[in-house]
């Protein structure tokens, strides 16, 4: 399946683009992260410390072990600092 992967804040800067379309067989977010990190050094660096990464699936906060089945959009970003 194909998913739109979005990046925000310093993840976006380290990866060098705000979004990309990824063909994947990953069953979970964690498997998708492994696939992305294997693409090049920029992805690997951005996704090296997962304790500093939050994830949303189809615009709802989720976690690394969530299943990806049916997901259209997966976003990765640092802990939020609104307000």
């Amino acid at each position: 399946m194909a998913v739109d992967v979005l990046y925000f804040a310093w993840l976006r800067e380290r990866i060098g683009q705000p979004r990309e379309r990824i063909e994947t067989q990953a069953a979970t977010v964690r498997e998708l992260v492994a696939q992305l990190a294997a693409m090049d050094e920029w992805h690997a660096l951005a996704l090296s410390d997962l304790s500093a990464v939050r994830v949303a699936i189809d615009q709802e906060l989720s976690d690394l072990d969530a299943p990806l089945a049916g997901a259209r959009e997966v976003a990765f970003f640092p802990p939020m600092t609104g307000g």
């Binding site: 925000f8 976003a75 970003f77 939020m80 609104g82 307000g83």
Partner: peptide, 12 residues
């Protein structure tokens, strides 16, 4: 405010 600061997708 507590929810906004930690759960709304903003980055400064």
């Amino acid at each position: 405010m507590d929810w906004l600061k930690s759960r709304a997708p903003f980055w400064k």
